[in-house]
């Protein structure tokens, strides 16, 4: 064990992710937390493409990839099949934000409503990275992507990110959490918890993308940490409908410190940065109120 986590790797070296890939860091620790008795279902996306070039696989767990938008449905079939066989394994469903927020949202919503026992983990890098950095429902406001380019008239994406964890929590999911590759022990613990709690659980992991965000490959963890420290990506859990902030950021850094390390935000004006700061402040205040007032998601 190193830092309380097993040394055994289930997502092994030799995969073809970019140098400094945030999602690859997440894959390693998510699978460590899940352990041997786990079936992985993965959506089409970077992590699928880099890990399964026939005849090689980076996975040391039983693994299936079907399509982009149907992992939650495939997992539903696996879960019910195992039930009829009298077997119980962890079912770990993996997808990027495109697969989760957008194209696979219907399948995920349906599977959660039906109450299948699985853990869905979204690696959130805020765009369709595998197809070349296109805007998704998880792309932050004003981010430059190849389909929301920062132009002379339109300065990148014009909308805020979809609040997916809240939407999932409102489905009566027993456990919803956010995590970041900057805090691996926390990620590890949340994955364990999500697999232990009966029913459909959801963890959204913040995973910076080196080419997609235009960051130095050495800085993907640093950028992820700044997202937490600026309150851009708050870490919390919603257990049985009650929200708890798991990382209280008492003295937040200005969002600019997070934004300035990324090429996708380099076109931002002072006003736009202020607008983002105001949004982040308001969202944090809302989280704090939800927590303090014990507001229930269901």
């Amino acid at each position: 064990m190193i830092r309380g986590m097993p040394e055994e790797e289930f997502f092994v070296s030799g995969h073809r992710a970019c140098a400094g890939c945030g999602a690859a860091i997440a894959m390693r620790h998510i699978t460590k937390a899940a352990g041997k008795n786990t079936i992985v279902v993965q959506a089409t996306g970077c992590m699928e493409v880099v890990s399964t070039p026939y005849p090689q696989t980076a996975w040391r767990l039983p693994y299936i990839h079907g399509a982009f938008e149907n992992t939650a449905a495939i997992a539903s079939g696996i879960e019910r099949a195992l039930k009829t066989l009298g077997k119980k394994y962890n079912i770990l469903v993996l997808g990027g934000d495109g697969a989760t927020f957008d194209i696979g949202f219907g399948a995920l919503s349906g599977a959660i409503e039906r109450g299948h026992n699985f853990l869905y983990v979204c690696n959130d890098n805020g765009a369709y990275m595998n197809t070349g950095i296109q805007r998704s429902g998880a792309t932050p406001k004003y981010a430059h992507t190849t389909t929301s380019p920062a132009g002379k008239v339109i300065p990148g994406k014009l909308e805020w990110k979809k609040p997916l964890p809240f939407i999932i929590a409102s489905h009566r999911a027993p456990y919803v959490a956010t995590a970041s590759i900057s805090d691996i022990p926390d990620l590890y613990a949340k994955i364990k918890k999500g697999l232990t709690i009966e029913g459909p659980c959801y963890v959204q992991v913040f995973t910076p993308c080196v080419p997609g965000w235009g960051i130095d490959s050495a800085k993907s963890v640093e950028v992820a940490r700044l997202a937490v420290e600026t309150r851009v990506f708050p870490l919390y859990e919603i257990e049985n409908g009650l929200l708890k902030i798991t990382k209280d950021v008492k003295e937040p850094k200005p969002v600019e410190e997070y934004l300035k390390l990324q090429r996708r935000f380099r076109h931002l004006t002072k006003e736009q940065i202020e607008e983002i700061q105001a949004f982040v402040d308001a969202e944090w205040k809302r989280l704090k109120e939800l927590e303090a007032n014990k507001c229930r998601f269901y």
Partner: peptide
Amino acid sequence: GAVIKEPGSTLKNKT
């Protein structure tokens, strides 16, 4: 079915 029966075989791919 293109099933890969050698878990962890990307270890052959020295990156």
